[in-house]
């Protein structure tokens, strides 16, 4: 029975000692230890969240870079397209212009050739006419050098006139 009978003196010492121990330990041991643990945990947590933040930022940056790159690519494509269009246009215009010019020149040349031809033909005609007159004059002069021939001719004309 002695075993389960609490001893008054021991209760007293236990209570006093335990309370003093608890007070001193909480003040000089648990407080700094818990504080240090909490501090370390917060610092670790902060470091982790900062790393996470940095990762997110990095991803954002990467996405932005990609966006910029894509934009740049699109811009380049657009510029290239525009440039090629402009070049095509230029070539097209030049081609039409050249065609027009060529056509115009050909037309001019044709006109000039026609004119020259007409002129040449007129000259040939004139010359032929002159030659013919000349020839005729010479023939006539030769034919009509004797009065008999002149007579015959006159008779021919007269004949012709009667027939008319």
């Amino acid at each position: 029975m002695d075993l389960v009978t609490p001893n008054f003196g021991l209760i007293f010492w236990q209570l006093v000692t335990f309370l003093i121990v608890m007070f001193l330990l909480s003040k000089f041991a648990w407080k700094p230890i818990m504080g240090a643990l909490r501090e370390r945990e917060t610092s670790i947590e902060n470091a982790l969240s900062a790393a996470e933040q940095a990762k997110l930022e990095m991803q954002g940056l990467k996405a932005e870079n990609e966006k910029l790159l894509a934009e740049a690519r699109m811009e380049r494509d657009r510029i290239l397209k525009e440039a090629s269009e402009a070049a095509n246009n230029l070539v097209e215009t030049a081609k039409t212009k050249a065609n027009d010019e060529g056509a115009r020149m050909i037309a001019q040349a044709r006109e000039a050739i026609e004119n020259e031809k007409l002129a040449a033909l007129a000259e040939v005609k004139n010359m032929a006419a002159a030659l013919s007159v000349d020839i005729a004059e010479r023939i006539l002069r030769k034919e009509l050098s004797d009065p008999k021939a002149q007579q015959a001719l006159a008779e021919d004309y007269i004949r012709e006139v009667t027939l008319n």
């Binding site: 075993l3 389960v4 009978t5 609490p6 001893n7 008054f8 021991l10 209760i11 236990q14 209570l15 335990f18």
Partner: peptide, 11 residues
């Protein structure tokens, strides 16, 4: 010792 555990349990 029952006195010791008594104090702790009482606290």
């Amino acid at each position: 010792n029952i006195a010791v555990t008594l104090v702790l349990a009482t606290l």
